[in-house]
Simulated assay, not measured.
Amino acid sequence: MDLEKYSWTQSLQEVNINIPVPNGTKSRFVLCEIKKNHLKVVLKGEPPIIDGKLFRPVKPDDCYWSRG
């Protein structure tokens, strides 16, 4: 599903969220907090891209973010 600031896909086992960032963005400028019931993604100095409650709880230790 394509939204204004990001897109996402989902299967029975996982959800993938793709967030385009400006070229040259270093990983240290990305804040990604994945909690049991909440997801927050921010580029340093910018308003949050995602900051909200999750539909269902997740296991934060099973979640990760990567720079593609």
Rank of each mutant, 00 (worst) to 15 (best):
P20H: 01
E33S: 12
K59R: 14
E33I: 07
G24I: 12
V15H: 00
E14M: 12
V42Y: 03
E33H: 11
G45W: 08
I34W: 01
P20C: 03
G24S: 10
N37D: 13
F29V: 06
P20Y: 01
K40C: 08
F55L: 15
V58C: 04
H38K: 04
F55Q: 11
R56N: 06
V42L: 11
L31F: 07
L31T: 14
S7Y: 10
H38S: 02
K59T: 15
I49T: 07
F29A: 13
Q13H: 13
M1L: 15
T25Q: 08
K53V: 07
R28Y: 12
T9N: 08
I34C: 06
N18C: 09
I49R: 01
L12N: 13
T9Y: 01
I49L: 06
P48D: 04
S27H: 07
G52P: 03
N16H: 07
G52E: 07
V30N: 04
K35H: 10
I19T: 03
W8G: 02
S11W: 06
L39A: 00
L39G: 00
E4K: 15
G52Q: 11
S11L: 07
D62S: 11
F29W: 11
Q10T: 05
R28C: 06
W65M: 07
I19G: 02
S7T: 14
R67T: 15
K40Y: 06
I19N: 03
D61F: 09
C32Q: 00
S27E: 14
P60T: 06
T25R: 09
D51C: 04
L54N: 03
N18K: 09
Y6N: 00
K36G: 04
K44R: 13
E33A: 12
P22Y: 08
C63S: 08
M1C: 15
G24N: 07
E33P: 04
V15R: 02
L43N: 06
F29E: 12
R67K: 15
G68F: 07
E14C: 12
K26M: 09
I50L: 09
Q13K: 12
L39K: 00
M1F: 13
N16L: 10
V41Q: 01
V21A: 05
Y6Q: 02
M1H: 15
